[in-house]
Amino acid sequence: MEPLKPASLTLRKTPPISTREFAELRRFIYDLVGIDIPERRKYLLENRLGPRILQLGLRNYSEYLMMLHHGPDKNTELKYFFTKITTNETSFFRDTKQLDVFETHVLKNVLQECEAAGNKSLHIWSAGCSSGEEPYTLGIMLHEILRMSIIGWKIQITANDLSPDMIAKAQAGLYGEYALRTTPKDVVDRYFIKETQGYKIHPKVQKLVSLGLINLNDKLAVKRVPKSHIIFCRNVIIYFDDAVKQKLISNFYDNLLPGGYLVLGHSETIHKLSRVFQPLIKPGGIVYRKST
């Protein structure tokens, strides 16, 4: 058995991306999904996409771009492409403090207002739902607040993500220990079914959630989302530049019903981007409200 020869070790495994190809790909991604890949991430992009190019038997990134633009399977490939340029790290009941703020100061109020107005229907939009942890957490929260009276409500949580992989995972609703690491044990017992393959979200929660793909940079797609009482968009806007963020925030504003709420990730604020929302600053998090 010969020892490993250091000289045979190389970092380069895939075709190099040329300056022109990088510029074109950068433009393509920005126009499509509004994410700007700065120059310093060139090699990261190369590392993420390179193996796919080899797998498809292509010679370079120009050919790959051609395929994304004009290929017969371009829609299928685009879905794959999206999973390569986005990433996701979430868990159930992540950021519990922010969720507490949300439950106490937002969700309970909204439910009361709906009930007082004699309209027991609620729409929450989880924009950027990753593998489903967030919308299911919201579904569990609603069950916990409303208990048996939930049957009298018409509730829909629309959950969207750019990555088809993530939506497929959310649809399966099957999670490992890691995703449940911040979930209280009694909640796991009541809302998950232990299976050999993992913890499966209970159908009574799953039926509240309607999953689908979305490109938040696509104004028409965003317009098709039903009007919401609450929008959750956590840890998504960090991927966008200010111009796209602004566009997105204004689309969210249009989607919200009067008095509706926008909830962003813990370290995200929009005060530099938009003044149309009224921020409610609570210990543990900020939520934004559209005027009534």
């Binding site: 490993l4 250091p6 000289a7 070790l9 190389t10 970092l11 380069r12 495994k13 190099p16 991430r41 090699y43 990261l44 190369e46 590392n47």
Partner: peptide, 27 residues
Amino acid sequence: QEHVRNFFIFVDPDHEAFVELYRIAVQ
């Protein structure tokens, strides 16, 4: 190699210093 390669995902794979550092890290 797979493990070590992860740490080099952000750098120029043709950069002579990083190629050498990759070899060193694998060894």
